[in-house]
Design a protein around this nucleic acid. Structure first.
Length: 116
DNA sequence: GCGGTGACGGTCG
DNA sequence: CCGACCGCCACCG
């Protein structure tokens, strides 16, 4: 078998597809953490790369990127407008925020059931 | 090849 | 609870 080469191709590493695949599975009204997505994508301890991959998404992507938050349930986008967009999309799906702007993972976190 | 950077996260104080 | 540090590692100039 030709081992798939880890080859970067212009802002598109081979790990991005795996990450997107996981993000695509996050159900409406729930959130997953960057670290969780990384682990499910088979890339434990690579939470930063999940953020990197999402940052590289084309505008208008159908991927539910807004369902990914930090380990403490906080929105991690740098730009204020991005944070606003994410929060809006989540609230529109029924996800509520604490007064301090965080999502209670115990309540809205995505509990993955045995792989599938 | 090197060093800075980042949509992270765990640990500490 | 919060900020500071540091480990992590692909990408980019």
């Amino acid at each position: 078998m030709i081992r798939p080469r880890l080859r970067p191709s212009r802002s598109e590493s081979s790990i991005f597809p795996r990450i997107r695949e996981v993000v695509r599975r996050i159900p409406r009204g729930r959130v997953a953490t960057y670290g969780q997505v990384a682990a499910l994508a088979g890339l434990p301890r690579h939470a930063r790369h999940v953020g990197y991959a999402l940052h590289a998404l084309p505008e208008g992507t159908p991927l539910p990127w807004h369902r990914v938050v930090g380990a403490q349930g906080a929105i991690r986008l740098r730009r204020p407008d991005g944070r606003w967009t994410q929060r809006m999309r989540l609230e529109r799906e029924g996800v509520r925020f604490t007064p301090r702007g965080r999502v209670r993972l115990a309540e809205f976190g995505w509990r993955v059931r045995r792989s599938s």
